[in-house]
């Protein structure tokens, strides 16, 4: 009896690993900014935290772990993290997906492949000049924009905290 129960564990473990792997591999492509923008209108009182990044952007990669940790902190809360990759579309398979997999990125990753940045950048924030990383938080329909890299976990959390009330 004991032995047969034990035999389940590798199978369950394998299933869990597979589920996580499959989950981390999906990266949706948005060809135009309005597709992404439609995600900004979260239902009800869910807070949305959007981080614009790219695999080639060093400061972006440096702050990604802070966003990873948030996922744990806000688990079960009405808080959603969306990581918007600005990598080129043709680098989805070669760069973005392997990166997401290797770094075990948990928050949802999408790739925005709208090349007409002059048109959509002002819709994120009028102050943004296009350098990344930047972070946008939408709380009850109100937008808050941070145009720099977060230097620490603490700084990111206090920035979020300051706007969450």
């Amino acid at each position: 009896m004991k032995g047969s129960r034990k035999a389940y564990w590798p199978a369950i473990f394998f299933m869990l690993v597979t589920i996580t792997a499959v989950k981390s591999q999906t990266v949706t492509i948005y060809d135009s900014f309005p597709q992404l923008e439609s995600r900004f209108h979260m239902s009800g009182d869910t807070t949305l935290l959007v981080n614009f990044w790219a695999t080639w952007c060093k400061p972006c990669i440096q702050e990604l772990p802070y966003f990873q940790s948030l996922e744990k902190k806000f688990a079960g809360k009405k808080f959603k993290i969306l990581l918007v990759s600005l990598d080129f579309r043709m680098q989805l398979e070669t760069q973005v997906i392997p990166f997401v997999k290797n770094k075990k990125i948990k928050p949802e990753v999408v790739l925005l492949a709208d090349g007409d940045a002059n048109n959509w950048i002002p819709h994120v924030d009028s102050q943004w000049d296009g350098a990344i990383p930047v972070t946008l938080m939408i709380v009850h329909g109100e937008k808050f924009f941070y145009g720099h890299r977060f230097e620490s976990q603490k700084q990111l959390e206090s920035w979020i905290g300051a706007h969450l009330n």
């Binding site: 080639w56 600005l86 940045a117 950048i121 002002p122 000049d129 296009g130 350098a131 990344i132």
Partner: peptide, 13 residues
């Protein structure tokens, strides 16, 4: 016109 446009790029470091 336009005299100023925005673009995504790598931050100068």
């Amino acid at each position: 016109n336009p005299a100023v446009t925005k673009a995504i790029g790598c931050s100068i470091k």
